[in-house]
Design a protein around this nucleic acid. Structure first.
Ligand SMILES: [Mn+2]
Ligand SMILES: [Mn+2]
Ligand SMILES: [Zn+2]
Ligand SMILES: [Zn+2]
Lengths: 143, 143
DNA sequence: GTTACTTTGATATTCAATTTCACTGGAGGG
DNA sequence: CCCTCCAGTGAAATTGAATATCAAAGTAAC
């Protein structure tokens, strides 16, 4: 938590930017959330305690957080981009329930390895990837 | 080709819809294209021979084609949805060059199998999935 | 305090996706 | 072959998220 604030502080100063009150408030509120949330959702959260902070500032701060690696932008095809806190650089992919919207995170190193093999076959240099599995979660299947 | 027209015809009639000139023109033009194309691109193609056909009709017909399984909707995160012709139900995933936009298709049954294992672990019923690998193609890497 | 910035936040703009609605035209029944 | 009805069409409007704009406010160095 505090370690992440430090990362942000350093990034801000490296870039010649300023550590403003708004940015700190937004960062704190973002770190407090778990799971995946949209700019709109974070904006509404922030707004409760700090009604003066504007949508544009939340939007720009989330971009900053993504730049410095504290946040990961996710587009699950639901019309709006979601953000999530990145935990010590660990990568993961998602199972997404199209019924109730639940998002389950998973990692599978075997799949990651096979992706590398595929890329190699086509002489392709991987920068990033996304694997999303859509369907029904256990709760929605049983009901 | 003709077989696909038949599939469309059947779907249309099953749904109590009408096989209009516009829909046939759009279907034919769509089947003639290879690779991935946007609604806009197909619209422009169609327009050349049939300037009277509107964008909304192309848009709606692509939705129909997706519904009956002749087309697959793809969102590669580039701001607009792309469509591609589905060839005899074969699934594939994509390597996407973020430099030049080239899209390479691949299938890897081992990855597909591992996805099933992951889903099973979480008691999740797979309906669909997307795996996209972003990076640089061989051409862009060498230059 | 003055200067030279950056940041903020209300608002405007963009752009694809989608909807609207008055007019048109397939297709089945006669 | 003609009717009639209801789905289809297409120009235009609307939506909604993402992003840009810009005047006012804030910040830090001089
Ligand atoms: Mn996640
Ligand atoms: Mn493809
Ligand atoms: Zn569910
Ligand atoms: Zn390339």
């Amino acid at each position: 938590m505090s370690e992440k604030r430090e990362i942000f502080r350093k990034y801000i100063s490296q870039q010649g930017l300023k550590l403003t009150r708004q940015r700190q408030v937004i960062l704190d509120e973002f770190l407090r959330m778990e799971a995946h949330l949209s700019t709109e959702e974070l904006y509404l959260k922030v707004r409760k305690k700090h009604p003066h902070i504007g949508y544009a500032t939340v939007y720009r701060t989330l971009k900053l957080l993504a730049e410095c690696g504290l946040a990961k932008e996710r587009d699950f095809g639901a019309g709006q981009t979601l953000y999530e806190v990145t935990h010590r650089g660990q990568h993961h992919d998602h199972l997404i329930c199209t019924e109730c919207g639940e998002i389950i995170e998973f990692e599978d190193l075997r799949i990651e390895e096979l992706q590398k093999q595929v890329a190699k076959k086509y002489d392709f240099t991987i920068r990033d990837h996304r694997l999303e599995i859509y369907g029904r979660c256990s709760k929605c299947s049983s009901s």
